[in-house]
Design a protein around this nucleic acid. Sequence first.
DNA 1: GAGTGGTCTAGACCACTTT
DNA 2: AAGTGGTCTAGACCACTCC
Lengths: 233, 233
Amino acid sequence: MAPPLYQVVMNTIVDRIASGSLPSGAMLPSETQLGAELGVSQGTARKALMELEARGLVQRVQGRGTFVTVRTPETSLFNFFRLRNPDGTLESPRLEWETVRRRAATPGERAELFGRPESVIEIERVRSLAQRPVTHEVSVVSAALFPGLADRVPLPNTLYVFYQQAYSVIIVRADERLSAQAVSEASAKALGVPAGTPVLEVRRRAIDVLDRVVELRSSQSLTDQHDYFVSVS
Amino acid sequence: MAPPLYQVVMNTIVDRIASGSLPSGAMLPSETQLGAELGVSQGTARKALMELEARGLVQRVQGRGTFVTVRTPETSLFNFFRLRNPDGTLESPRLEWETVRRRAATPGERAELFGRPESVIEIERVRSLAQRPVTHEVSVVSAALFPGLADRVPLPNTLYVFYQQAYSVIIVRADERLSAQAVSEASAKALGVPAGTPVLEVRRRAIDVLDRVVELRSSQSLTDQHDYFVSVS
DNA sequence: GAGTGGTCTAGACCACTTT
DNA sequence: AAGTGGTCTAGACCACTCC
């Protein structure tokens, strides 16, 4: 019934991070201090911090301390933008254009997104690699969870860093479904390729540190000059 | 310089598993026994076992013990065959046909595969889902590492379980590069689809518990009725 | 009841970073 | 020198499985 103490400690820290009281890059209390503060032993505080590091929420450095993981555009791209050059290197994509609009949620979006929103914000973007449009993507988030987002265009290049800094919504993982399709009419126009071109379609559910589905994203990418990299185990 | 004791314990166990002296499903010594045997404390033995569990190499059950992870065709498919129904469920693919041949390694295969083999074994297969051919795949392994493999046709449905049982080669993870392509001539014939059909191409490097690249696999799949599922973080 | 892993504590020493 | 995380130990008690 009662959760182990180290999980209580973990939840305490997660809440502090999600509430913004421990902002990105902040140093956490030492193992000894944390244990004293929460009434557990140093070893138990240590176990909690190690689990949080395994989840990627904090980073620990011997001799320096434990810090809330900093998500920069670079690290965010590395984790969530998986198109790579044939040799495996990552090239930063360029944002060609975007449109942001508010609209009513579809029944499917209501069912999948956290909070069952009536109203959503849709972000449509085209990204380029090597001077060439390669990805056309449409992201959808709850309007209630991201108030005023539509008024902040142009949005930063990496949305997940922006979600964290402006709304304390921390994306930690995503489920993706991939398929090869003939390019859609909209994407053909956006990418400037003929009808029938094969594209990699990715449908993503992005999940935050509180385990909520906070964004749905669908993209179509040209993969004649780049590959989508992934590791399975 | 000196590795921590728990890593020494880990390596000892990995070697026992890789050598077959701890076969699939075998029970490991208890934390106390293992510590006594290797001259470390129970806590250190415990840490080693927990790390191995995190890597998926062993499974621990309270009250029962620690066991070498059993890889069944089901668990292997679940991990390494990522095509799923639209609702996310996994349907077991049927092996339609296979051909196995021995041939000289290409320069690229020599460079990538463990042991720089001169000679490789190539396994070509077509798999079906719902009575319909969906995947055409070609796997390549070192002939030296898998002696006599070509003489054992027909091979079992799930190669990675077979590698482990017959050769003590334990595949633990794989790197994959995905792209959307127009179907190749060979795959079009194998899958019975017209030229130009978009297919999901996956190029895989399979890596074993000793961190060796032991198999290269390239596949083309129809994804009009199934999706490739993956989780990123 | 005996044996297993899971949690928790208390303390020690080491390696590293910073002042 | 002080403070941090990393390793290691020894012991306790709990929860669970099996006989």
